[in-house]
Design a protein around this nucleic acid. Structure first.
Lengths: 114, 114
DNA sequence: GTATTATACCTAGAAACTCGAGGTATGTCA
DNA sequence: TGACATACCTCGAGTTTCTAGGTATAATAC
């Protein structure tokens, strides 16, 4: 009932990688972006996000650097790597296959239209 | 990052309920049906399925009865209840919201087309 | 006839994923 | 100076799924 989770966590990691594909972001920002882009369907918790980021970094799917915010506070930005982009593509395809399969099963719920 | 899982397990239970909405089935058959309907994307394991069925029965979303197969073997059939159908509708909507949200985030991956 | 395979059910323990609840620290605003 | 928002982090627990077993019967192969 799974794909291969060797490198990645569940759908949360897919979403994180997807965000980073458009621009470098820091953790707090990702949570806000996910909330916004998903129209408040997702609200990822910090306890979920940070371990995922650390894991992706360990897998070299992302790199990180610190940068001072206009306010003077330090932020830790994440940048997606080539490998991360490849991973993202894989995960996207997995997601597509998965969602199509679920939809196919759900469509079968009603008696076949044939 | 979740909906409410008070009554149900994850997507596996949604799929099981969906199958039972079209006809009564026994465990082994459900595994085969899922494989077929999902075009081999899903292969639910018995260790996943049976606990889910027992749980759904405890929640009164399904009922079960034994019936002899043409071969003479006993099979345990499951039947979805009114409550199970309601649950299925809820879970379907949850799934729709979730998948749309994922797609929205993924669509944002590429720079906005605007 | 007997051994293997397919059918059919089940469970316990481990692994994976996410969350809740906490902690630390800095900047802003009243 | 006290409260709140920002920003990072971790530990332990809960949920979900899998692995790896177990039992038993019918069909098939030798």
């Amino acid at each position: 009932m799974k794909a291969d989770r060797s490198l990645l966590n569940g759908s949360a990691a897919l979403l994180v990688l997807s965000l980073l594909a458009s621009e470098d972001m820091y953790g707090y920002q990702m949570i806000a972006q996910l909330e916004e882009r998903s129209d408040h369907t997702f609200s990822m918790k910090e306890g979920t996000l940070y371990p995922i980021l650390h894991n992706l970094e360990k897998e070299k799917a992302v790199t990180s650097y610190e940068k001072e915010a206009p306010t003077g506070r330090m932020r830790k930005y994440y940048h997606i790597t080539k490998g991360g982009l490849r991973l993202l593509e894989d995960k996207k395809q997995e997601w597509t296959a998965f969602s199509q399969a679920v939809n196919a099963v759900l469509a079968g719920t009603a008696p076949a239209l044939a």
